[in-house]
Amino acid sequence: MIDEQTVRHVARLARLGLDEGEVARMQAELSGILEHVERIRALELDDVPPTTHVESVANVMREDVPTECLEHELALREAPATREGGFLVRGIGA
């Protein structure tokens, strides 16, 4: 249904560092769910348009008028690590 390699690939795309046990469990669980979900693959849907929004509204926009920004201190308040007024990130080049 879904092989281990695919599970690892998807986990990497989603940036989830699954350990070996989680990979195996995920493979079994996802396969079970996908088996259920497979039922819709049998439906004849060629002429059916997709629904992305249930609403039919369009052109909802904002005027180009500035609003108040966050105080610098508040913007950084919840950050796990900051440096020189910015959000700290380590190991980008690693």
């Binding site: 904002r62 180009d64 008028v65 500035p66 609003t67 108040e68 920004c69 966050l70 610098h72 913007a75 950084l76 020189e84 007024g85 910015g86 959000f87």
Partner: peptide, 21 residues
């Protein structure tokens, strides 16, 4: 005058993280 998806004013050379929401 403002960003694409929020009302933060655009600038150039403003102090770090002072144009956010």
């Amino acid at each position: 005058r403002t960003k694409m998806f929020c009302g933060c004013a655009l600038g150039f050379g403003e102090p770090i993280n002072t144009r956010t929401c």
